[in-house]
Structures are given as C-alpha cells and as structure tokens.
Design a protein around this nucleic acid. Structure first.
Length: 118
DNA sequence: ATTCTAACA
DNA sequence: TGTTAGTA
C-alpha cells in the first residue's frame, strides 16, 4: 500500500510516516515510481510504535526493539528484551516522580510560610 | 488527486 | 509537525 493508505489506516500523518523512516523505524520498499510501498504488517508496526511513543518512550529507544514489534498476535506481545528495557524505563520514571514530589512539597512549604506572614 | 524531497515562519 | 514549492 502507498503512504496515504497507511496514514489513513494507522492514524499517523504522512509527514510522521516519512519521519519514522528517516529515523530508521520503518523501511518500506520503493516502487518504480519512487513511491514508498508498505505492506499490511506495517500498519501494526506503526500502531505499536505510536503506542510505545505515547507511553513516553523515545523513538531511538523504540528503534532498538523493532524485532519485538514485528511478530504476530497483539500489538504488544511478550518480548523479554523489551520488557526488561521497560522495567528500567519505569524505574527511571518513578525516580523522577519522587523528585517532583519533593520539589512540590518544598515549594508548597515555602508558599504556606509566605502566606502565613501575609 | 497523490507522492516525493527539501526547507521554512 | 504542519505546510509549501515544483515535480513526476
């Protein structure tokens, strides 16, 4: 299928689809016309990329686990390597959340103090 | 009408 | 990312 159809079937803009290719996430074949030629499996791969990206994973991170997004079954099927990486990512998020909570707590404390003196 | 590349407000 | 230009 051509890029326009993949765009409609995945909900990802044509612009983004080309961007994904430039970032090495998808490698569509080319027709004699020069048009990109995607296969039906690409719909699922693009959907998986969107899912992971919206979950906060950067594209260069996702790029390393493309093999995990290619097999059959659900968009996100069990994949040891990817799951291990996701655990680390979640831990990193938890660390950041903890630091944000501290900042929020400190700021709130200073604010209340200023409020009590006004 | 659709796609392509490159580049811009 | 969107959008636009000039093509094929």
């Amino acid at each position: 299928m051509k890029i326009g159809e993949l765009s409609r079937r995945s909900g990802v803009s044509v612009r983004m689809l080309r961007y994904y290719e430039s970032e090495g996430l998808i490698a569509p074949a080319r027709r004699a016309s020069g048009y990109r030629d995607y296969d039906v499996e690409d719909v699922r791969i693009v959907l998986a990329i969107r899912t992971l990206n919206e979950a906060g994973l950067k594209l260069d991170f996702i790029r390393r686990f493309l093999p995990c997004l290619r097999s059959e079954g659900p968009i996100l099927h069990p994949c040891p390597d990817l799951m291990a990486a996701m655990e680390q990512q979640m831990q990193a998020l938890d660390d950041r959340i903890g630091k944000y909570r501290e900042s929020r707590k400190m700021l709130g404390g200073y604010y209340e103090e200023m409020l009590s003196h006004s």
